[in-house]
Design a protein around this nucleic acid. Structure first.
Length: 491
RNA sequence: CGGGGUGUAGCGCAGUCCGGUAGCGCACCUGGUUUGGGACCAGGGGGUCCCAGGUUCGAAUCCUGGUACCCCGACCA
């Protein structure tokens, strides 16, 4: 088979770049740091959106939409928040262009300078809390459980398709509550939603945990995260849920009258996942032949390739194939019968492998004679001839098997890539030679965490929820510690 | 934002050192033979050589300045 991808062993990052481009997921655009998500890639994102949106609705949330632009003054109201985002904000300063005096093209009209500059949202807490102020008077107005699907802009210096782009798509939930406990429960609920989505749909096992102060979202009291492990041993933060306390309520003066008639600030959360999940999906499962997609999110779940010599043969195969397509579609699956006469079967096989289609069926003259069909599964690259009769039922269970199998594979990989260490020396050795999650004792200080980051490039990904308590000493300072935390080099 | 590399047909590249008016593979078009793992033969079309200046009789090639992408750092989801 012609090799179209750099192999993972040769260069993991090059493999990733090749794969995103060759599988037609996305490409770089004319705008620095911004990508074009191509139809095949966007179809995966749409499936993610559909599932997540359902999960949000099922947990009581509603969708709304807030402006792309945020008055500059809003951003500076919460001190930590502005500090966290100031360095990567795009700023709108003018609202009009004019013909260039030299006749070549257009220039910004200096007359059209904005009174107050507008920030292109890097996240929407500020504009939303400014809005919520008008929505909330009493505890009867609470909770507010809004989500928005939107694009945001963070002016990154170095970008990579899906993993870090200047503009990306995401959803951001913003909730307002009467009590601290309720807001905390909300942040947890959404973390669990993300974990469930990652594991059941992306087929990516995740560690749920809380971030350290160093890694916390700017403006949050606590940041909860789901951390996934990629095949190269690096961690990928795949979703975050923040307990914002009363920070934004105080910054935007959002108060309410509680049941006792007293005025209090509102409690808040925010939570989001982005097109970065595409990166997690790609890097968790795919191989040197191309994408491996979990059936639940694959745009095409089953493809049927006819093998034929004459048009008469194709016609006969089409009858069988179209019948099967109808059956599977009736069961809710996305099926494609590729009767394109311009491409040969071998080409199609390679192409659908590259694009990660979970199940490929081939039907040729031999199958018509024998009442069979060749079934190939993408995850294991194995083929089997099965009876055509009842094949739709077998495909349904096969798709389930594949979904389970790739999750199990990722889970096994994570187990094999998780190492407990008790000395700083061993820590560094494991990071360099093996990678993955490294569980170690830490004294709980930002100084030590920063030192480890400076010296090893590894960060604390999270302190797992329900973490096993275990007396020990910090591997760096020797100070007492009550539990191990998860370290890794990360994307 | 620092260091390095690369921009030549849709894609991947050679040509650049040593200046003389652009080539290879794949893809594309036409015809034929093919079709159970990226078919073959024959013919054909396609280029402001990243952009802007400069040097020169002449620039893909030399000089200056931009710009985009890739890799490695710093920053971040």
């Amino acid at each position: 088979m012609a090799k179209v991808l750099t192999s993972r062993s040769e260069s993991y990052s090059q493999w990733y770049n090749d794969l995103v481009l060759k599988a037609d997921l996305a490409e770089n655009s004319a705008v620095r740091g911004c990508m074009v998500i191509k139809p095949y890639g966007y179809a995966i994102w749409e499936k993610m959106q559909a599932v997540l949106d359902r999960m949000f609705k099922d947990t009581g949330h509603v969708n709304a939409y807030f402006p792309l632009f945020i008055p500059k003054s809003f951003l500076s109201k919460e001190a930590d928040h502005v500090e966290g985002f100031a360095k990567e904000c795009a700023v709108v300063t003018h609202y009009r262009l004019m013909n260039s005096p030299d006749g070549k093209g257009v220039v910004v009209d200096p007359q059209a300078k904005l009174e107050e500059e507008l920030i292109v949202r890097p996240t929407s807490e500020t504009i939303i809390w400014n809005t919520y102020k008008g929505w909330i008077q009493s505890y009867r107005d609470l909770p507010i459980l809004c989500n928005q699907w939107a694009n945001v802009v963070r002016w990154e210096m170095r970008t990579r398709l899906f993993l870090r782009t200047a503009e990306f798509l995401w959803q951001e939930g913003h909730t307002a509550h009467a009590t601290q406990a309720e807001a905390m429960t909300e942040a947890m609920t959404m973390l669990k939603v993300y974990a469930k989505f990652a594991e059941e749909y992306l087929a990516v096992p995740v560690v749920q945990g809380v971030k350290t102060a160093n890694e916390r979202f700017a403006g949050a009291v606590e940041t909860y995260t789901i951390e996934a492990l990629m095949q190269d041993g690096k961690a990928l933060q795949s979703g975050t849920s923040h307990f914002l306390g009363q920070n934004f309520a105080k910054a935007f003066d959002v108060t309410f009258t509680n049941q006792e008639g007293k005025i209090d600030h509102v409690w808040a959360t925010s939570w989001g996942v982005s097109t970065r999940l595409m990166g997690a999906l790609i890097m968790a499962h795919s191989d040197d032949n191309g994408l491996v997609l979990p059936p639940k999110l694959a745009p095409i779940q089953v493809v049927i390739v006819p093998i034929y010599k004459s048009m008469e043969e194709l016609d006969k195969i089409s009858v069988v194939a179209k019948e099967l397509v109808a059956k599977l579609k009736a069961k809710g699956y996305d099926v494609k019968f590729d009767d394109n006469d311009k491409k040969k079967p071998g080409w199609k096989f390679a192409e659908y492998e590259l694009k990660g289609v979970p199940v490929r069926l081939a039907i040729g003259p031999r199958d018509l004679e024998n009442g069979t069909v060749e079934v190939a599964r993408r995850d294991t690259l194995t083929k089997e001839v099965m009876q055509l009769d009842g094949i739709d039922e077998r495909i349904v269970s096969l798709l389930d098997d594949i979904q389970t199998n790739i999750y199990q594979k990722a889970l096994d990989f994570r187990a094999a890539s998780t190492t407990k260490v008790d000395s700083y020396e061993e820590f560094q050795k494991v990071l360099d030679e093996k990678g993955g999650f490294v569980l170690a004792h830490w004294d709980g200080t930002s100084e030590t965490e920063q030192r480890i980051k400076d010296e090893t490039k590894a960060t604390i990904r999270c302190i797992p929820l329900d973490n096993e308590q275990e007396a020990g000493v910090c591997m760096v300072t020797g100070q007492p510690s009550t539990q191990r935390v998860v370290f890794a080099r990360a994307y």
